[in-house]
Design a protein around this nucleic acid. Sequence first.
DNA 1: GTTTGTGAAACGATTCACAGCT
DNA 2: AGCTGTGAATCGTTTCACAAAC
Lengths: 220, 220
Amino acid sequence: MKKVSESTIARLSVYLRLLTELAAAGVTTLASGELARRCGTSAAQVRKDLSFFGTFGKRGLGYSVPELTEALRGILGLERRWRVALIGAGKIGAALMAYQDFRRQGFDIVAVFDADPARVGTEWQGLVIQRDADLETSLQGIDIAIVAVPASAAQGVVNRVVAADVRAILNFAPTKLDVPEHVAVKTVNMALELEGLSYALVNEARGARRVTSRPAASRG
Amino acid sequence: MKKVSESTIARLSVYLRLLTELAAAGVTTLASGELARRCGTSAAQVRKDLSFFGTFGKRGLGYSVPELTEALRGILGLERRWRVALIGAGKIGAALMAYQDFRRQGFDIVAVFDADPARVGTEWQGLVIQRDADLETSLQGIDIAIVAVPASAAQGVVNRVVAADVRAILNFAPTKLDVPEHVAVKTVNMALELEGLSYALVNEARGARRVTSRPAASRG
DNA sequence: GTTTGTGAAACGATTCACAGCT
DNA sequence: AGCTGTGAATCGTTTCACAAAC
């Protein structure tokens, strides 16, 4: 098969979200140009992204909204439901538990773990928080682990998650994780995004003052 | 003027986090290879990233941890503190408020807004939730707006944020935002990350080849 | 000896442009 | 006519490789 970049997959998710919205609004057909405009990319990009997986459009007409929706759901593996375990019942964990949108998209949080004995046994959104010590056994049948523990604990937790044969991890700890090649990891790092904004702000200011436009001295 | 990619800036943040950790552990000197290994990238990438901003190392020796730390803080604009407003006091907002790490990195949440009259006036982590209607006036002096409102409300909020002359936005709404060119936007989209994991899982099952990836994990 | 800084090469992703359907 | 699908061209990023510095 072919190699598909992560950015293509990310865009497919964005396309799918728009299509779902349009379908609810009764739109039945859509051209790549309009899809691109609404998703912040280009028509050629849309067509190239889709071309990795097949041909879904009708020349002269565009794409059928329900058909493309189904195709994207299939490509992204959203035709089934995924069993998700949340590890770490702190603030981030609480926000995730409450965020019902995940369930709507096919991700069911079916287990919650925490290392704090004071939290273990309490009920949370209909789930009883389990002991961290039970991770290995209780992760049977789990597809995706959400790691929402402090950075210092993350690698240890991940090692145990991997040992339990979970092959996908959504990581909220601001740290690099070592995992075997067959395990997929996505990291959400809000501090990093904020620092990107900080850079943009100072850089805009520096650029306006043209401080950086001075030619570099001859290099040695 | 130099053009630096967003991935370079993201990596600089990662380098800085490691350096801060190493400095606390008393490490004084570090070579690009070791920095790269600990951050999941390559030595050449580290040196190229830094080279956009100057020369910071000593040949034959490596980098001074405190000096490079200071340099990175300067590049990323972290030598000052930033005034952040949180718009939307729901679950995500609550998690962000509680996440003290932002403050430690120089980002102070100094105002909170919500559209729900039941929430307005309540105190939250030492801040009184303000009326959404007061956004325009109360955003004076704010550097960064965190948008944590439903997708359907996000563009409207963003328009008002931009009108209030805020030039950086951290967006948690799963929707495309239109902003003028001089406004920087970073989006955090957890559903999208989960769908990326879903794709990885079904794709592995389908026996397809690996997705091209960024600073992937795993090395030995 | 070691390690940096950097042009040049290699690689990967995006955009172009047009043939081929509807 | 309008729009897709795709090879070719372009653009940007990463890796290579080595001279210069310590």
